[in-house]
Design a protein around this nucleic acid. Structure first.
Lengths: 215, 215
DNA sequence: TAGATTGTTAATCGATTAACAATC
DNA sequence: TAGATTGTTAATCGATTAACAATC
């Protein structure tokens, strides 16, 4: 791998979009694309796209552009999609079940290998071929499977307890749907938060404050 | 309302967090808080918090700090939580059902008043007290209820058709879980995207590229 | 009054955009 | 070679942080 170091989050958050779009182009048979065309289709500037890509190396060819397939593969590698991070999910309620059933973990670098909940009513139900286990079983499961990432879809208070436990076992990577601030308590963790409430509130703000709606 | 104009998205995206945290403080009986204390608890700088709040007005008192209850209420008003934007949701699959059942729309400025899907197997099922209707019924529903926001939880291709339809009817506000780029096609819409795949890929990148993991 | 903490201006830092030389 | 488009440096823009005067 070439350069790579101190890549800003702004850049990293654009990579999945590039990746997604390039795969789409590839599927529709496009072989080559220029930064200008990419920028037009994505609503960004060509400059930004070239700048972003060049954080990781020169994938293009002067006077020609980028090979779609090759660039898609390169970005996939940068993102690490062919990793198989063993993943467990906590909280088999509405949201947790949906995430387990809906997400294509495999294509995104993760293997979902276990689902845990402490409600007896949930334990035993099958989601995407995985039986929900009692959270009590997790220590034994951990010892055997050594998962390295945890998805948190529990209520907030449960999340605090669970993270204490997972952290102590050695899990440092979290996809966090709760409002519990993991990184604040454990600074050496790696947390990606999904705050659905905050997202919806942002929309609420925008609707309330858009032009012609200042009541 | 005082100032307010050209508030940057960076600021707006922090407001829900302030709001959430202040409600929590309020519940635990805290009456007053300084920007310094807030900053420590949230992991931000005091300067940033004061700067953010002063986009909307002076809510504090020199030498004293901010009244928790009053500030929470002010931010709630800025966000518009007491709005009752009539909302419909499209796509009663795993994700859509979970969003419908899990989100507290009421507390966040929205009223979920209808759920639509075009799979006969879904139509008629009840989610959070709302019967899923056939998408075919939407025009009649729209004429009666005039919803003003739509949540999109369908596959991407369905989303394109649905948005064309909703846009033509006059709906301009979207909470979009699909990868269809609404704002690109309809620039006068207001769209809040939730891209779960992108979020997970970002985590994948971070795990793959964290210190001591450069394989 | 003295101490504390805001509101606000100025300085810094980082991210985006523009420009252009290198080169395919 | 001429035309096109990248890679990269420099200029601009915006967001964050620091500093401090105003004031409760």
């Amino acid at each position: 791998m070439p350069k790579r170091e101190n890549i800003s989050m702004s850049v990293i958050r654009r990579l999945p979009r590039y990746y997604r779009f390039l795969l789409q182009l590839q599927k529709s048979g496009v072989v080559r694309i220029s930064s200008t065309e990419l920028s037009a289709r994505l609503g960004l500037t060509a400059s930004q796209i070239r700048q972003d890509l060049n954080c990781f190396g020169g994938f293009g060819q002067q006077g020609y552009g980028y090979m779609v397939e090759q660039l898609a593969e390169a970005i996939g590698n940068i993102l690490g999609v062919s990793n198989r991070y063993r993943t467990v999910l906590f909280g088999a309620g509405n949201l947790g079940s949906a995430i387990a059933a809906h997400m294509n973990f495999k294509d995104l670098g993760f293997d979902l290998i276990g689902i845990f909940d402490n409600a007896p009513s949930k334990v035993g139900s099958i989601i995407r071929g995985i039986a929900v286990q009692d959270t009590k079983n997790f220590p034994a499961f951990y010892a055997q499977q050594k998962p390295e990432m945890a998805v948190l879809c529990t209520p907030r208070t449960a999340a605090e307890r669970i993270v204490d436990h997972l952290y102590q076992l050695g899990i440092r990577n979290y996809w966090n749907f709760t409002h519990y601030n993991i990184a604040m308590k454990y600074p050496d963790t790696l947390v990606e938060n999904v705050h659905l409430n905050d997202s919806l509130l942002t929309l609420c703000y925008q609707i309330s404050n858009q032009e012609g709606n200042e009541h």
